[in-house]
Write a protein that binds this DNA or RNA. Structure first.
Lengths: 247, 247
DNA sequence: TTGAATTAGTGTAAAATTTACACGTTGATA
DNA sequence: TATCAACGTGTAAATTTTACACTAATTCAA
């Protein structure tokens, strides 16, 4: 309550949906509120935007303080500003989502203080988050579903070495669907973004899978070329082109 | 300057990129600033968000006051909050874009007072907008390019009756590309959203084109079904599915 | 009245992409 | 050494996308 006095009638915050991937599940890092409103409830990590701070910087700050990580993928999604979304006053929040490698996450003082914990996204529906955070999570998850079709997000979410099955499970978790193994592999390998490490898993009670890593070089080429929604250039000199109209 | 005193150190605004389509060009409604900063420069219409007003409502209000229109397509895109984006203080703005039928737009007192004028989007680059409005316009235009692939935006931007060539020009303007006439028609007509009015243009100095209108019924079915990014359901009972991974 | 100008309207074949689908392989373990 | 569990692989059909060029309808000017 005290903080609000510093922020006039309305306040400006960022909330961050931090996605990770582990044990076949897409997860989100939540904190447990230690004060009213919504004491004891799970919520998205977020904080006020300082007067001399850009929005993106604020989102990075929240992420860094909680996870110790920086230089990760972070994207603004939407703003949420319903008049009554915070019971104590007018609070407008800008929602971000970020993708991190869950194994890189270490318990920080902030994460302990805020009782941060990973939750499977699928389980959060029943949990019921504080404020309008269910809605924010939904919007960010939706956005991730879009982005996964354009950007190879595995690079951001998986450990350096991974199997194709792990990658497939990641896509299945994000898209909330089953994928055909052979078609998935065909597609992914045809993108030429993966390097076959010619190593195999160890210590699994079945045929061990090959390990792959992302080709960082090609990944960045990929992003700079084909991004910003490919309208394929025609081969003709005249520049006749054709659009999908519907993907 | 006086207004800022009412809004403490930081202020929240909405800015609205109002798109229209006319004479083969995608246009945007700009106002000419009558005061500092950026006096005389063109800018996006926008205004402060009132304390008791939702963000969307504020965006609608800006749109309504300027155009007299309501019940149009309006979508939030992003927030812009760089510390120095406004020379007089911290102003965080939420950007919206809306699609209107340019022929429905009537001069309002507000549009006269603010010297509102339609500009071809292509020409705005050279114009140079106030604040970071070039960036905002770019983000909204980009978003429109995405949305046009999923949602038949012609419904929002064209007059009730139109020719297929007009529709094609609209898509070409948005996608900034040329489309093949036959392929375009094939695609559009296969969507089954158009009604052939069995009328033709009049008063044109060439073969007159057929007129079409959107089938409002099917348009709404279309939006409720296939929207929110179609992951096609498999025909199998088991639920095996296949994604594009890359549109 | 005629032909020149201008835009409308139409189909097909090749290429590329997507989809559906099943079984032998490998290594661990009991 | 047999069983278990997940790995890894190819092909054919269906669908979608792409490339491409001429005739039709109307106005206008000679």
């Amino acid at each position: 309550m005290t903080l609000f006095d510093n922020f006039f009638k309305s306040a400006f915050t960022v909330d961050n949906v931090i996605f990770g991937f582990d044990e076949g599940d897409l997860k989100v890092l939540l904190i447990q509120r230690g004060e009213d409103p919504f004491m004891g409830k799970w919520a998205l990590p977020g904080y006020f935007v300082y007067p001399e701070e850009d929005l993106d910087s604020a989102a990075y700050r929240v992420l860094r303080e909680l996870t110790g990580l920086n230089n990760v993928y972070l994207e603004q999604v939407n703003s949420f500003g319903k008049v009554d979304r915070h019971p104590f006053g007018r609070v407008i929040t800008v929602a971000y989502y970020s993708l991190i490698k869950i194994e890189d996450y270490k318990l920080s003082p902030a994460s302990i203080a805020q009782k941060a914990k990973w939750h499977a996204v699928a389980d959060v529906k029943e949990l019921g988050l504080a404020f309008d955070h269910d809605e924010i999570l939904k919007a960010c998850f939706q956005r991730l579903k879009l982005v996964v079709r354009i950007r190879p997000v595995g690079f951001e979410l998986l450990p350096p070495r991974f199997t194709l099955t792990q990658l497939q499970h990641l896509y299945e978790a994000i898209l909330e669907t089953d994928l055909d193994k052979r078609n998935f592999r065909k597609k992914i390998l045809s993108m030429n973004l993966l390097v076959d490490l010619e190593q195999t898993q160890e210590g699994v009670a079945h045929r061990p899978a090959r390990l792959y890593q992302f080709d960082k070089q090609k990944y960045h080429e990929f992003l700079s070329e084909g991004f910003s929604f490919e309208v394929k250039e025609s081969k003709k000199k005249g520049g006749n082109q054709q659009s999908g109209l519907r993907a």
